[in-house]
Nucleic acid binder design. Structure first.
Length: 327
DNA sequence: CAAATTTGACCAAG
DNA sequence: CTTGGTCAAATTTG
């Protein structure tokens, strides 16, 4: 079956499911189910987002599956490139191109419009390892990697860049997946905090407006951009965490927001809220750190993070879509 | 003291 | 050459 055929099938199914959801919504309205009414718009918007993003996927290229198929970067894990003795290393490993694009798994824009202390935490510890001025951008781009890179070989990274036109908006680009276990959050004393933290986050995200827009660039590594507009109007966050805050904010001369952290979930909220992380990543998500995946089945919050980052996976990560995948 | 950040230099790709 | 990404020494932070 060709890629295009699969795509149209999935589109059909999604559209149908969306219509069904609309019907369900109207029925629920009549029945006045308050809890359901909160969820339905989210689910609906997820469908619409999925549809738009799916149609954005290049039909013949299959760019996403390609890029994410090899999520792990080619760079050596031990990766030390020494400045002085680098020659032997590179000669010994000539095949490796070291960096390249291919790992971009998700790009999320986080915009905190009103909230000041909106401390969106993605639950991970990040260590900044670089900052660069980007051509055409007013603000520098910060480079972060997982704190546990050395300890656990976690290759997750992210880039944070403040938007030029709207300085209150950050563009966060994730690369790689977390294979680490965030020890902080597993501590008995703090696990409860983390739980609460999550709950707050979830509540917060209920007031979130999601605008998924296609970024139909010609670059193959470019993925659909999820624009997350967060109306954190009434939520104040205890800035309990000593989370790594991008240095951008420090140099913010003007901003009223003093502690904004451009963080987010890997998957954006409409997806994280579905506990159906049965992980339907059939073909993708080649995780070489097999032991790190043991958490999938048990911990709900962890399963959120271990889910695939490939948008393709994201969209198909619904239970009722599993059948479609098997087409 | 360790851990995180800053910052200029290095490196590959275009 | 320029540009974006990374390294690592120096510095800051807790």
């Amino acid at each position: 079956m060709s890629y295009i055929e699969q795509k149209s099938l999935i589109l059909n199914e999604l559209t149908q499911a969306k219509e069904l959801l609309k019907q369900l919504e109207s029925q629920l309205d009549a029945a006045t189910s308050t809890t359901g009414n909160l969820l339905l718009p989210k689910i609906l918007s997820s469908f619409e987002n999925s549809l738009s993003m799916l149609s954005a996927i290049n039909s013949e290229g299959g760019t996403q599956s390609q890029t994410t198929g090899s999520t792990e970067s080619p760079r050596s894990v031990n990766g030390s490139r020494k400045r002085h003795c680098s020659s032997d290393l590179l000669i010994g490993n000539p095949s490796k191109k070291k960096k390249t694009i291919q790992g971009w798994t998700e790009q999320v824009r986080v915009c905190e419009q009103t909230g000041l202390e909106g401390h969106l935490d993605d639950g991970y510890g990040w260590r900044k390892y670089g900052q660069k001025d980007i051509l055409g951008a007013t603000y520098p781009r910060g480079y972060y990697r997982c704190t546990h890179r050395n300890a656990q070989g976690c290759l997750a990274m992210k880039q944070v860049q403040r938007s030029d036109e709207d300085p209150s908006m950050f563009s966060v680009t994730y690369r790689g997946r977390h294979t680490c276990i965030q020890a902080v959050h597993l501590l008995p004393g703090q696990s409860q905090n983390r739980h609460d933290h999550h709950d707050q986050k979830r509540m917060k995200l209920q007031g979130t407006v999601f605008n998924f827009q296609k970024s139909c660039h010609d670059k193959t590594e470019e993925l659909s951009t999820a624009q997350v507009v967060i109306n954190s109007s009434s939520f104040s966050f205890p800035s309990s965490a000593s989370l790594p805050v991008p240095s951008i904010e420090k140099e913010s001369d003007n901003n009223n927001f003093s502690s904004m952290t451009p963080d987010n979930h890997f998957m954006g909220s409409p997806f994280t809220s579905s506990p159906s992380t049965s992980v339907s990543n059939s073909s993708f998500s080649p995780n070489n750190f097999g032991e790190g995946q043991s958490m999938q089945n048990s911990e709900f919050d962890l399963s959120e993070f271990t889910s695939a980052f490939d948008p393709t996976d994201l969209y198909l990560d619904f239970d009722f879509l599993d059948s479609i995948c098997s087409i």
